[in-house]
Computed example of a mutant assay.
Amino acid sequence: MPKPPKKEFDLKERIQKIRDSGILAQPDQKSILDPEDELLPLSGRIEKILNIFQGKPQKSTTMNYLIMYDIENNKVRRLVAKYLLKNGCIRVQKSVFLVHSDHKKFEEIKQTLVEINDVYENEDSIILVPLNISDARSMKLIGKNVNIEQIIDPPNTVFL
């Protein structure tokens, strides 16, 4: 007897199923990270960011956005991360994503995140920040040895 086809759930339905299962009542639960949750090496993240800021000129209908979250529950956090990656967001840090998208797509992502946050009792926060090129150029990075100016405005080199 063949297996029935696997049903695909959207993110809101998955969060609702988690809520219904009672898992969210156990905030101290630990989980093993999926390989998909791992960050790219720093050079890979820098390359993806460079492609966004140095790519083709942006249409006036598109914008860069930072999406940052502090979600306590591991399962919800993992589902949100997978949703953001599926929708073209680039993971900069564990809970920080950069997305280059048109306003309509960004509003869809924002609305989904609002609905997820409303599904269950929590004290989580999700921050969505529009980021234009001049703001990106004024960013400073503390910690890792990455010069943000070289990412946004790389020096010009002439080889003779």
Rank of each mutant, 00 (worst) to 15 (best):
V114I: 02
N145M: 14
L141C: 08
I109R: 06
H103Y: 09
I126N: 04
E123D: 07
F106Q: 06
E121L: 15
V146L: 07
N147C: 07
Q150I: 13
E123W: 09
M139I: 13
F97I: 02
A136H: 07
I126W: 03
K104H: 07
N147S: 10
K104T: 00
L128C: 13
I126M: 03
K105C: 00
S138P: 09
L141I: 14
D124G: 01
D102P: 10
V129E: 04
L131Y: 02
H103E: 08
S134L: 11
I148V: 15
L131D: 03
I133G: 09
N145A: 10
S101C: 14
D102Q: 05
S125L: 03
I133F: 13
H100C: 03
S101A: 11
H103M: 12
V99A: 10
D153W: 14
T112L: 08
Y120W: 01
I127W: 15
S134C: 05
F97V: 05
I151E: 01
M139C: 14
S134T: 01
S134Q: 01
N122C: 01
S101Q: 11
Q111G: 01
E115K: 00
I116G: 05
S134W: 06
S101P: 06
E121Y: 06
V129R: 04
D102F: 04
V129N: 09
P154E: 05
D124T: 03
I148Q: 07
D153K: 14
F106I: 04
K104F: 06
I148L: 11
S134F: 11
K105Q: 09
I148G: 01
E121I: 13
S134A: 05
I127M: 13
S134H: 05
I133Q: 10
E115T: 10
P130R: 12
H103K: 14
R137G: 09
D135N: 11
S101M: 13
A136Q: 10
I152Y: 08
